[in-house]
Protein backbone atom coordinates (compact mmCIF):
# COMPACT_ATOMS: atom_id res chain seq x y z
CA UNK A 1 0.00 0.00 0.00
CA UNK A 2 1.34 3.42 -0.91
CA UNK A 3 1.00 6.34 1.51
CA UNK A 4 -2.05 8.60 1.27
CA UNK A 5 -3.71 11.39 3.23
CA UNK A 6 -6.79 10.46 5.21
CA UNK A 7 -9.81 12.67 5.83
CA UNK A 8 -12.88 11.98 7.95
CA UNK A 9 -15.40 14.74 7.21
CA UNK A 10 -18.59 14.95 9.26
CA UNK A 11 -20.71 16.93 6.78
CA UNK A 12 -21.62 15.91 3.24
CA UNK A 13 -20.66 19.30 1.72
CA UNK A 14 -17.24 19.01 3.35
CA UNK A 15 -16.77 15.56 1.86
CA UNK A 16 -17.83 16.78 -1.57
CA UNK A 17 -15.48 19.73 -1.31
CA UNK A 18 -12.52 17.52 -0.40
CA UNK A 19 -13.36 15.20 -3.26
CA UNK A 20 -13.35 17.99 -5.83
CA UNK A 21 -10.47 19.97 -4.38
CA UNK A 22 -7.94 17.12 -4.02
CA UNK A 23 -6.90 15.66 -7.31
CA UNK A 24 -6.67 11.84 -7.28
CA UNK A 25 -8.69 11.58 -4.08
CA UNK A 26 -11.12 8.74 -3.49
CA UNK A 27 -14.13 8.17 -1.30
CA UNK A 28 -13.98 5.16 0.96
CA UNK A 29 -17.19 3.69 2.31
CA UNK A 30 -16.80 0.12 3.63
CA UNK A 31 -13.58 -0.27 1.66
CA UNK A 32 -14.31 -3.86 0.68
CA UNK A 33 -13.09 -3.29 -2.87
CA UNK A 34 -10.89 -0.24 -2.45
CA UNK A 35 -8.69 -1.46 0.40
CA UNK A 36 -7.64 -4.72 -1.34
CA UNK A 37 -6.93 -2.67 -4.45
CA UNK A 38 -4.69 -0.36 -2.45
CA UNK A 39 -2.95 -3.29 -0.80
CA UNK A 40 -2.15 -4.74 -4.18
CA UNK A 41 -0.80 -1.33 -5.21
CA UNK A 42 -3.22 -1.30 -8.13
CA UNK A 43 -4.54 2.11 -7.06
CA UNK A 44 -2.65 4.90 -5.35
CA UNK A 45 -4.96 7.79 -4.48
CA UNK A 46 -3.38 10.85 -2.92
CA UNK A 47 -6.13 11.03 -0.32
CA UNK A 48 -8.92 8.90 1.04
CA UNK A 49 -12.10 10.60 2.19
CA UNK A 50 -13.76 8.32 4.69
CA UNK A 51 -17.55 8.63 4.76
CA UNK A 52 -18.01 6.73 8.01
CA UNK A 53 -18.44 9.89 10.15
CA UNK A 54 -21.37 11.08 8.06
CA UNK A 55 -24.06 9.87 10.43
CA UNK A 56 -26.84 11.03 8.16
CA UNK A 57 -25.88 8.35 5.62
CA UNK A 58 -26.74 5.44 7.89
CA UNK A 59 -30.08 3.83 8.58
CA UNK A 60 -33.27 2.64 6.96
CA UNK A 61 -36.50 4.65 6.83
CA UNK A 62 -40.02 3.88 5.65
CA UNK A 63 -42.43 6.53 4.33
CA UNK A 64 -45.21 4.11 3.53
CA UNK A 65 -44.64 4.11 -0.22
CA UNK A 66 -40.89 3.65 -0.30
CA UNK A 67 -38.00 2.40 1.78
CA UNK A 68 -34.89 4.53 1.88
CA UNK A 69 -31.54 2.99 2.82
CA UNK A 70 -28.70 5.33 3.76
CA UNK A 71 -25.63 4.89 1.57
CA UNK A 72 -23.39 3.91 4.49
CA UNK A 73 -25.71 1.16 5.73
CA UNK A 74 -23.81 -2.14 5.87
CA UNK A 75 -25.19 -5.20 4.10
CA UNK A 76 -25.64 -7.05 7.40
CA UNK A 77 -27.96 -4.30 8.65
CA UNK A 78 -30.08 -4.49 5.50
CA UNK A 79 -30.13 -8.28 5.67
CA UNK A 80 -31.19 -8.21 9.31
CA UNK A 81 -33.65 -5.31 9.06
CA UNK A 82 -37.15 -6.33 10.12
CA UNK A 83 -38.45 -3.49 7.98
CA UNK A 84 -36.71 -4.64 4.81
CA UNK A 85 -37.55 -8.26 5.55
CA UNK A 86 -41.22 -7.30 5.84
CA UNK A 87 -41.48 -4.88 2.90
CA UNK A 88 -38.95 -6.20 0.37
CA UNK A 89 -37.85 -9.63 1.56
CA UNK A 90 -36.06 -10.25 -1.74
CA UNK A 91 -33.75 -7.30 -1.03
CA UNK A 92 -32.97 -8.52 2.50
CA UNK A 93 -32.23 -11.93 1.01
CA UNK A 94 -29.90 -10.37 -1.57
CA UNK A 95 -27.98 -8.51 1.14
CA UNK A 96 -27.61 -11.75 3.12
CA UNK A 97 -25.92 -13.42 0.13
CA UNK A 98 -23.18 -10.85 -0.38
CA UNK A 99 -19.65 -12.01 0.38
CA UNK A 100 -19.12 -13.40 3.84
CA UNK A 101 -19.98 -12.14 7.34
CA UNK A 102 -16.95 -9.85 7.50
CA UNK A 103 -17.77 -8.27 4.15
CA UNK A 104 -21.42 -7.87 5.12
CA UNK A 105 -20.45 -6.11 8.33
CA UNK A 106 -18.18 -3.60 6.60
CA UNK A 107 -19.46 -3.29 3.04
CA UNK A 108 -22.16 -0.70 2.33
CA UNK A 109 -24.96 -0.35 -0.17
CA UNK A 110 -23.68 3.01 -1.37
CA UNK A 111 -20.18 1.70 -1.89
CA UNK A 112 -21.43 -1.30 -3.83
CA UNK A 113 -23.72 0.75 -6.07
CA UNK A 114 -21.10 3.45 -6.71
CA UNK A 115 -18.45 0.84 -7.58
CA UNK A 116 -20.82 -0.98 -9.97
CA UNK A 117 -18.78 -4.15 -10.09
CA UNK A 118 -20.21 -6.25 -12.94
CA UNK A 119 -20.65 -9.20 -10.57
CA UNK A 120 -21.89 -7.34 -7.48
CA UNK A 121 -25.31 -8.18 -6.10
CA UNK A 122 -26.78 -4.79 -5.22
CA UNK A 123 -26.88 -3.42 -8.78
CA UNK A 124 -29.32 -6.25 -9.65
CA UNK A 125 -31.56 -5.32 -6.71
CA UNK A 126 -31.40 -1.60 -7.41
CA UNK A 127 -32.11 -1.98 -11.13
CA UNK A 128 -34.60 -4.80 -10.62
CA UNK A 129 -36.61 -2.75 -8.18
CA UNK A 130 -36.32 0.43 -10.26
CA UNK A 131 -34.86 2.25 -7.27
CA UNK A 132 -33.74 5.86 -7.17
CA UNK A 133 -30.14 6.76 -6.36
CA UNK A 134 -30.14 9.87 -4.16
CA UNK A 135 -26.91 11.86 -4.31
CA UNK A 136 -25.46 14.99 -2.77
CA UNK A 137 -26.78 16.97 -5.73
CA UNK A 138 -29.74 15.16 -7.35
CA UNK A 139 -31.77 11.99 -7.79
CA UNK A 140 -30.98 9.45 -10.52
CA UNK A 141 -33.24 6.63 -11.70
CA UNK A 142 -31.56 3.21 -11.64
CA UNK A 143 -32.24 2.80 -15.36
CA UNK A 144 -30.04 5.84 -16.00
CA UNK A 145 -27.42 5.13 -13.36
CA UNK A 146 -25.54 1.94 -14.31
CA UNK A 147 -23.46 2.59 -17.42
CA UNK A 148 -21.45 -0.63 -17.77
CA UNK A 149 -18.21 -1.98 -16.38
CA UNK A 150 -17.51 -0.03 -13.16
CA UNK A 151 -19.15 3.05 -14.75
CA UNK A 152 -22.04 5.04 -13.35
CA UNK A 153 -23.80 8.33 -13.97
CA UNK A 154 -22.08 9.88 -10.96
CA UNK A 155 -20.35 13.18 -11.73
CA UNK A 156 -17.01 14.12 -10.21
CA UNK A 157 -17.60 15.25 -6.65
CA UNK A 158 -21.05 13.66 -6.47
CA UNK A 159 -21.69 11.44 -3.44
CA UNK A 160 -24.44 8.83 -3.08
CA UNK A 161 -26.38 9.56 0.10
CA UNK A 162 -29.18 6.98 -0.10
CA UNK A 163 -31.04 4.52 -2.27
CA UNK A 164 -34.84 4.78 -2.34
CA UNK A 165 -36.76 1.64 -3.18
CA UNK A 166 -40.39 1.47 -4.30
CA UNK A 167 -42.31 -1.38 -2.68
CA UNK A 168 -42.98 -4.29 -5.03
CA UNK A 169 -45.87 -6.70 -4.78
CA UNK A 170 -43.36 -9.51 -4.90
CA UNK A 171 -39.61 -9.71 -5.39
CA UNK A 172 -36.93 -12.36 -5.30
CA UNK A 173 -33.23 -12.82 -5.95
CA UNK A 174 -31.39 -15.94 -7.02
CA UNK A 175 -27.65 -16.08 -7.22
CA UNK A 176 -25.26 -18.63 -8.65
CA UNK A 177 -22.10 -17.91 -6.75
CA UNK A 178 -18.76 -17.94 -8.49
CA UNK A 179 -17.06 -20.85 -6.73
CA UNK A 180 -13.95 -18.97 -5.58
CA UNK A 181 -14.96 -15.33 -5.17
CA UNK A 182 -18.60 -15.89 -4.29
CA UNK A 183 -19.50 -12.90 -6.39
CA UNK A 184 -22.45 -13.55 -8.69
CA UNK A 185 -21.45 -15.75 -11.60
CA UNK A 186 -25.04 -14.97 -12.48
CA UNK A 187 -27.54 -13.25 -10.21
CA UNK A 188 -31.09 -12.39 -11.20
CA UNK A 189 -33.43 -10.06 -9.35
CA UNK A 190 -37.11 -10.22 -10.24
CA UNK A 191 -39.67 -7.68 -8.97
CA UNK A 192 -43.39 -7.58 -9.64
CA UNK A 193 -45.20 -4.25 -9.46
CA UNK A 194 -48.80 -3.35 -10.24
CA UNK A 195 -47.70 -2.00 -13.61
CA UNK A 196 -45.37 -4.82 -14.63
CA UNK A 197 -42.37 -6.95 -13.84
CA UNK A 198 -38.69 -5.98 -13.88
CA UNK A 199 -35.88 -8.51 -14.32
CA UNK A 200 -32.27 -7.45 -13.71
CA UNK A 201 -29.20 -9.62 -14.26
CA UNK A 202 -25.76 -9.21 -12.69
CA UNK A 203 -22.58 -11.21 -13.17
CA UNK A 204 -23.35 -12.36 -16.69
CA UNK A 205 -22.01 -9.41 -18.65
CA UNK A 206 -20.02 -6.21 -18.39
CA UNK A 207 -22.69 -4.62 -16.24
CA UNK A 208 -26.13 -5.16 -14.80
CA UNK A 209 -28.87 -5.35 -17.46
CA UNK A 210 -32.59 -5.96 -17.82
CA UNK A 211 -34.23 -8.75 -19.82
CA UNK A 212 -37.32 -7.33 -21.59
CA UNK A 213 -38.62 -10.64 -22.99
CA UNK A 214 -38.67 -12.13 -19.49
CA UNK A 215 -40.29 -9.00 -18.10
CA UNK A 216 -43.02 -9.22 -20.73
CA UNK A 217 -43.61 -12.92 -20.13
CA UNK A 218 -43.70 -12.55 -16.36
CA UNK A 219 -46.00 -9.55 -16.59
CA UNK A 220 -48.44 -11.86 -18.32
CA UNK A 221 -47.95 -14.77 -15.96
CA UNK A 222 -45.75 -14.44 -12.89
CA UNK A 223 -44.54 -18.03 -12.73
CA UNK A 224 -41.21 -19.76 -13.49
CA UNK A 225 -42.84 -21.66 -16.37
CA UNK A 226 -43.45 -18.40 -18.20
CA UNK A 227 -39.72 -17.88 -18.78
CA UNK A 228 -38.40 -21.44 -18.88
CA UNK A 229 -38.10 -21.37 -22.65
CA UNK A 230 -36.63 -17.87 -22.94
CA UNK A 231 -33.01 -18.10 -24.01
CA UNK A 232 -30.54 -15.30 -23.52
CA UNK A 233 -28.28 -14.26 -26.36
CA UNK A 234 -24.62 -14.88 -25.55
CA UNK A 235 -23.58 -11.61 -27.24
CA UNK A 236 -21.97 -9.37 -24.67
CA UNK A 237 -21.86 -12.07 -21.99
CA UNK A 238 -18.63 -12.79 -20.18
CA UNK A 239 -16.43 -15.83 -20.82
CA UNK A 240 -13.68 -16.55 -18.31
CA UNK A 241 -11.95 -19.47 -16.60
CA UNK A 242 -15.02 -20.07 -14.42
CA UNK A 243 -17.81 -19.98 -16.96
CA UNK A 244 -18.22 -19.63 -20.69
CA UNK A 245 -20.77 -17.23 -22.14
CA UNK A 246 -23.27 -19.91 -23.18
CA UNK A 247 -23.21 -21.38 -19.69
CA UNK A 248 -23.81 -17.94 -18.22
CA UNK A 249 -26.70 -17.45 -20.67
CA UNK A 250 -28.18 -20.74 -19.55
CA UNK A 251 -27.78 -19.77 -15.90
CA UNK A 252 -29.66 -16.50 -16.47
CA UNK A 253 -32.78 -18.48 -17.33
CA UNK A 254 -32.27 -20.93 -14.48
CA UNK A 255 -31.63 -18.18 -11.91
CA UNK A 256 -34.54 -16.10 -13.23
CA UNK A 257 -36.85 -19.06 -12.65
CA UNK A 258 -35.44 -19.54 -9.17
CA UNK A 259 -35.83 -15.83 -8.43
CA UNK A 260 -39.50 -16.04 -9.39
CA UNK A 261 -39.82 -19.09 -7.18
CA UNK A 262 -38.22 -17.15 -4.33
CA UNK A 263 -40.57 -14.22 -4.93
CA UNK A 264 -43.58 -16.55 -4.81
CA UNK A 265 -42.51 -18.42 -1.71
Amino acid sequence: MKPFAYHQPTQIPDAAKLLTSIEDSKLVAGGMTLIPTLKQRLASPVALIDLSRLGSLKGITDDGATITIGAMTPHAVVAGSKLVQARIPGLAALASMIGDPAVRSRGTIGGSVANNDPAADYPAGVLGLGATIVTSTREIAADKFFLGLFETALEPGEIITAIRFPLPLKAGYAKFKAPASRYALVGVFVAKFADGVRVAVTGAGAGVFRVPPMEAALSQHFDPSAIAAIKIDTDGLTSDIHAEADYRAHLVTVMAKRAVDAALS
Partner: peptide
Protein backbone atom coordinates in the same frame (compact mmCIF):
# COMPACT_ATOMS: atom_id res chain seq x y z
CA UNK B 1 -15.71 -31.19 -11.86
CA UNK B 2 -16.90 -27.60 -11.98
CA UNK B 3 -20.51 -26.65 -12.71
CA UNK B 4 -19.50 -25.30 -16.13
CA UNK B 5 -17.70 -28.54 -17.00
CA UNK B 6 -20.58 -30.77 -15.86
CA UNK B 7 -23.14 -28.61 -17.68
CA UNK B 8 -21.06 -28.87 -20.85
CA UNK B 9 -20.95 -32.68 -20.53
CA UNK B 10 -24.70 -32.75 -20.07
CA UNK B 11 -25.18 -30.53 -23.11
CA UNK B 12 -23.04 -32.88 -25.16
CA UNK B 13 -25.06 -35.79 -23.81
CA UNK B 14 -28.12 -34.00 -25.24
CA UNK B 15 -29.97 -34.28 -22.02
CA UNK B 16 -33.32 -32.56 -21.72
CA UNK B 17 -32.13 -30.78 -18.58
CA UNK B 18 -34.75 -28.06 -18.30
CA UNK B 19 -37.45 -30.61 -17.82
CA UNK B 20 -39.97 -28.39 -16.10
Amino acid sequence: ATPNRIWRLLQNASLPVAAE
